[in-house]
């Protein structure tokens, strides 16, 4: 107050009583309005979630109550043929899992190896080149990967295994390319986890006469397990939700098969194909994409929650 006094003469002329009234809290309408607006902005995300859950649940309910499709049939059937009233999600789910498995076989070892190389071996210069390369890879739209799968990966597979073995549309090519798509995700998350391991642990290992490999794989890697596990789970979730690559390269027809060289349609691929046409709002096809969407949403949500749980609860505290 004393400081302000010289510059604000009117304050000095006030009595103590006036000061009290001046200091009393008074409502600032503008501030409150702004805060409310900002809160609403934040709440949009909640509304989105509610919207997703509501829409998926409501239309799925219609799907199951419309008759013809029972829950048991839906979750146990392996034939998806709307024309004859067969809606067995496994025909689609199986293809999704095939693609995801193949993608993981590609992305996990490669991604982890790249992460270890970047974090433990590569010089600063090499890192400064490689990390942007991986970022570029991560920034390419998935439809471009789809083009890649269909026009390069499939012909390569057909070249290797023969045209009669590998169909033009197949889960193998789609899976491998999904693997390449999520590789940067795996490697960058895993590298973050590895880099977060304090240097003192590496020093300790070296001080005991450990080689670089022993230090990397037996001290640093175990110490980063939780982060790496989270990376893997997020990657799986991403692979399951991946759409354009499978829509372009995996096949356009539900097909319950375990042969990776055969065409099969994933959950996401099916949604894209069905909705790509002129979809009538009253058809059972329309309702069915919501049922598939609900299954997809639940799987990815659970995976994401698990990954965050893993990070939060299994992280080592070093300090």
């Amino acid at each position: 107050m004393a400081v302000g006094a010289s510059s604000r003469p009117e304050v000095t002329s006030q009595t103590d009583v006036d000061i009290k009234t001046q200091l009393r809290k008074h409502p600032r309408v503008g501030e409150t309005l702004i805060e409310t607006f900002l809160f609403v902005c934040g709440a949009v995300s909640i509304l989105t979630t509610i919207g997703i859950v509501f829409v998926l649940a409501k239309e799925s309910l219609l799907f199951f109550t419309s008759g013809g499709v029972s829950l048991t049939e839906f979750f146990t059937g392996t034939v998806w043929q709307p024309a004859i009233g067969k809606f067995g999600i496994w025909a689609l789910m199986n293809a999704t899992f095939m693609v995801t498995t193949i993608a993981m076989v590609v992305a996990l070892p490669l991604g982890l190896a790249v992460a270890i190389y970047l974090s433990e071996y590569a010089s600063l210069r090499v890192r400064s080149i490689l990390k942007p390369v991986l970022e570029v890879l991560a920034g390419i739209p998935t439809v471009v990967y789809g083009y890649f799968a269909l026009t390069l990966m499939t012909p390569v597979l057909r070249e290797i295994f023969g045209d009669d073995v590998v169909q033009i549309y197949n889960t193998a090519a789609a899976g491998i390319v999904v693997g390449i798509l999520i590789l940067p995700l795996v490697s960058s998350m895993a590298e973050d986890a590895l880099s977060a391991v304090p240097d003192s642990l590496r020093q300790a290992a070296f001080g005991l006469g450990a080689t670089k490999l022993e230090t990397a794989t037996r001290i640093v890697l175990p110490a980063a397990t939780s982060g790496i596990a989270a990376a893997f789970i997020v990657a799986i979730s991403r692979a399951i939700g991946e759409t354009m690559i499978v829509a372009i390269a995996a096949g356009a027809g539900p097909n319950f098969t375990f042969n990776p060289f055969n065409a099969a349609e994933t959950m996401t691929g099916h949604i894209v194909r069905i909705s790509g046409g002129d979809l009538s709002y009253d058809s059972i096809d329309y309702n069915s994409i919501f049922a598939i969407g609900l299954v997809l949403f639940c799987i990815t949500l659970v995976l994401n929650i698990i990954s965050r749980y893993v990070v939060a609860h299994f992280r080592e505290e070093y300090e």
Partner: peptide, 16 residues
């Protein structure tokens, strides 16, 4: 919720 939404497959947004 925001963190969870970031992990929802884009096609679900399409359905929404």
């Amino acid at each position: 919720n925001i963190n969870n939404l970031a992990g929802v497959p884009s096609i679900i947004y399409g359905i929404l």
